[in-house]
């Protein structure tokens, strides 16, 4: 994913990532609406940081929007990270738990 990719390459990759191996149209609809949903969800969650300070929320929101557009399609990553693989789940549990401990113990 070099930064010198042309717009054409990006669009091609985007389409390709969607359509790879899944020709059924009903599955495609799912992926398309899933992608849109994810982007909106992530933006709403980013907006939560307004609770701490409004400028921070704005910066994070803009950053997240940029990141989401850069890494699109996010739905593929989502699907991969939600696999029921034990190592994967264990990894995320460890991350979550560390976040809970860190926020609650040292967040005050």
């Amino acid at each position: 994913m070099g930064s010198i990719d042309s717009i054409y390459d990006k669009v091609k990759k985007y389409i390709h990532d969607f359509a790879s191996g899944r020709g059924a149209s009903s599955a495609m609809t799912g992926y398309m609406s899933g992608e849109l949903q994810t982007v909106v969800f992530i933006m709403i969650i980013a907006a939560f940081f307004r609770l701490f300070s409004i400028p921070l929320g704005m910066v994070i929101l803009i950053g997240v929007v940029a990141a989401v557009l850069y890494f699109a399609p996010t739905i593929k990553t989502m699907e991969r990270e939600n696999a029921s693989d034990l190592n994967q789940v264990l990894f995320w549990v460890v991350i979550y738990f560390a976040a809970i401990i860190a926020v609650t113990l040292w967040g005050r």
């Binding site: 799912g30 899933g34 949903q37 994810t38 939600n82």
Partner: peptide, 11 residues
Amino acid sequence: MLGVVMALLQT
């Protein structure tokens, strides 16, 4: 969020 997005992808 994760549950509902994953539900969309299922066939």
